[in-house]
Amino acid sequence: MAEPTHYPELSFESRMDSVEFRIAEQAHIVVDDRICADCSTRGCVVACPANLFVPTAAGGILFNYEQCFECGTCYLVCNEEGAISWSYPEGGHGVVFHRS
């Protein structure tokens, strides 16, 4: 009998490459990582479906807005007032779904 085929899981890059983003010049989400330095929970790091919150060696957070689903998870789970300034991107920009 044939061995079952093993399908390798997609890399995170190719996962995100499947999504169209019309990147705005202006960041729609800004993270103040001086505030993050005091944060003990860091829920954003594990919960952001686009994996955009990257802890730095210095104890802060590196954030890039470009491949964002605009879902709202990060501001909802963030427990430090003022760490995340969240808004929608400029009209016509950001994520564009086609088959979802």
Partner: peptide, 26 residues
């Protein structure tokens, strides 16, 4: 999600194809 896709009851339904779009929403 990868764990769900690998479940013996789910894998035979979804395995093998290309991911055309990944998406998220609250």
């Amino acid at each position: 999600l990868a764990r769900l896709k690998a479940h013996p009851a789910v894998a035979p339904l979804v395995e093998g194809g290309d991911v055309k779009e990944y998406s998220a929403h609250v």
